[in-house]
Design a protein around this nucleic acid. Structure first.
Length: 298
DNA sequence: CCGACTACCTGCCCGC
DNA sequence: TGCGGGCAGGTAGTCG
């Protein structure tokens, strides 16, 4: 599922429930996701207060009051949903499968949290288990292997034509691969790379090093690409991400950016660019589908 | 170092 | 209806 816009959507959905909440109970339904949970994971986060829920690239970060950070990656199929828990009667805090969970088989982690006397269950579901969670010290963030080599965020103003020209200078790899490389720009995935290249009118097969001017500085191409990336990511976040298959917001509703796709999953359809009569093609690059219009993406 | 490829895991969809 | 193959939003590890 999730690229940066989906993770940011999850963060915005969970923040009101988690920020300022105390973790009352943690249930881990299996020893591992993609990687084993750290030793004592459940015990070490139980009783902690979550000061802030932030995001770096495709990682969700729960910053705890003891200086540790829970880093969570959703892999391909991870999702969170938050449910209010009725209090009084029964033992709601002890419940693992929430009655409203639609896929209890893959509910791997349940956090019961309390904030202002309201109790919520926050459930992590992940059928393919490519996601993972770990716990690290706040001050380890810059040196930790998961984060040390992450590139710049594609949001805000940090990504401009100069930056992207510099990052891609001398690269023989195709633009598609360079944009997916988390060490250069962190947070893009298959969908939004395809969409950004379409908006920029650039071929996914073009060598990344060729978007700079002859002197290696920013060019019309690098400016266009930087703007396309920022614009696609920004609009996708506003739309609540893209809901393919199973991606849902934390309240169970659907994002709607998939209705704004111009090339992704549109093989054989006519190019959406006004005045272009090209046909969207699907090719495979480094083992992954790329969708693009050969007529207007050069 | 770079770039291409494989593996990880489950579910779904399509064609036969 | 059942079955095999291909495909899926990510990335760590390996290999040339």
């Amino acid at each position: 599922m999730p690229e940066l816009p989906e993770v940011e959507t999850v963060r915005r959905g969970l923040a009101p429930v988690l920020e300022g909440a105390v973790i009352r109970q943690v249930k881990i339904n299996r020893p591992d996701l993609r990687f084993p949970f750290p030793d004592g994971f459940a015990e070490r986060i139980t009783g902690r207060i979550i000061h802030a829920l932030s995001r770096r690239a495709k990682y969700l970060l729960a910053e705890l009051d003891d200086g540790n950070v829970i880093a969570m990656h959703l892999g391909m199929s991870g999702s969170f949903q938050a449910f209010p828990v009725e209090q009084g009667g029964g033992e709601p805090m002890g419940r693992f499968h929430h009655p409203r969970s639609t896929d209890p088989q893959h509910d791997h982690v349940v956090l019961n949290v309390e904030k202002a006397d309201a109790v919520s269950s926050v459930i992590y579901n992940d059928p393919r288990r490519f996601g993972y969670m770990t716990l690290l010290g706040r001050h380890e963030m810059d040196s930790h292997p998961l984060f040390a080599r992450l590139g710049i965020e594609p949001t805000g103003n940090s990504l401009d034509g100069v930056t992207i020209a510099t990052l891609f200078a001398g690269k023989a790899a195709p633009l598609k691969a360079a944009l997916l490389d988390q060490r250069l720009i962190a947070g893009l995935g298959n969908i939004y790379v395809c969409e950004a290249l379409w908006h920029a009118g650039l071929s996914p097969r073009r060598a990344a090093g060729t978007i700079a001017s002859a002197s290696g500085k920013a060019s019309a191409r690098s400016d266009r690409l930087a703007e396309a990336v920022r614009d696609v990511i920004g609009r996708a976040i506003e739309a609540g991400g893209s809901s393919l298959r199973d991606h849902r917001l934390t309240d169970g509703s659907l994002g709607y950016f998939q209705h704004s796709f111009n090339v992704y999953d549109r093989e054989d359809m006519t190019c959406a660019r006004p005045g272009c009569d090209g046909t969207v093609r699907r090719i495979v690059q480094s083992g992954r589908s790329t969708f693009f219009c050969p007529a207007c993406q050069r």
